[in-house]
Design a protein around this nucleic acid. Structure first.
Lengths: 125, 125
DNA sequence: ATCCGTGCAAAGAATTTGCATACAT
DNA sequence: ATGTATGCAAATTCTTTGCACGGAT
């Protein structure tokens, strides 16, 4: 556990948002200016692999990184890009049942308009 | 409807697989050697937008393109990369119900081991 | 004549990787 | 001293885009 890895880990733990590698890099740089992008990616990959953090895959978006919380899914707002958590348990079993084979893993990216953006939309239409 | 667009469209219609832009490009080139990658991407984007073909988004995979069939989902085999269709209707309503807001769209990438690869795995373990 | 789509090549975004060096053990 | 992780830069992968040109209306 190097200094840079601890820092990256802490940044993710401290945040309640879904940070991209670049956001993490920029934040890390403020505390450890010499840190390299490659180091960030390497450590994010390793920690995600080890199950210490979670990689959030959203279609056509850079990957984001999450602290490990109870299983949940993510929805991204098409207007403001904010990523919200949503509980959808049971989906995996659904898939397994209907597909008829064990699922190794899956990603579900849901695109929606968040309530605030929906309101703005309503106002200016 | 240009020659190149018709060709790209036909390649997708004729195939029962889920072709990447590159595979489509290579196949198109055999019939129309001057065709450019950019043209393929441009037309795939336009046709997908128009609903003439379907773009299949799989996490960490290049996009694939499908003829329009009844709504269905896709599973990719972690070993051989083959993309299989699977019917999972009702998932969208599930999501909407549990999320409590209208879903604009979503992508579901399911990773699994296909029966053949599972067999191979079993044999050599 | 006009306009849109093409071919080409260059640019882009996100991520990975090779390699010499620095660091901790 | 030994090995692993770093910083840096170059490479990769997938996709988009600017621009001059060609072909159809």
């Amino acid at each position: 556990m190097t200094r840079q890895r601890q820092l990256i880990f802490d940044i993710i733990q401290r945040s309640d948002r879904h940070l991209t590698a670049e956001q993490i890099y920029l934040e890390a740089k403020r505390h450890l200016p010499s840190i390299a992008m490659g180091t960030v990616y390497r450590n994010l990959g390793l920690m995600a692999e080890a199950g210490e953090i979670r990689r959030v895959v959203i279609a056509n978006e850079p990957d984001r990184f999450d602290r490990m919380l109870a299983p949940h899914h993510h929805m991204i707002c098409l207007r403001c890009g904010h990523v919200a958590d949503v509980e959808l348990d049971g989906i995996r079993q659904q898939i397994e049942m209907r597909a008829g084979v064990p699922v190794e893993s899956y990603d579900l990216s849901i695109r929606y308009i968040c309530p605030q953006c929906r309101e703005i939309e309503r106002t200016y239409r």
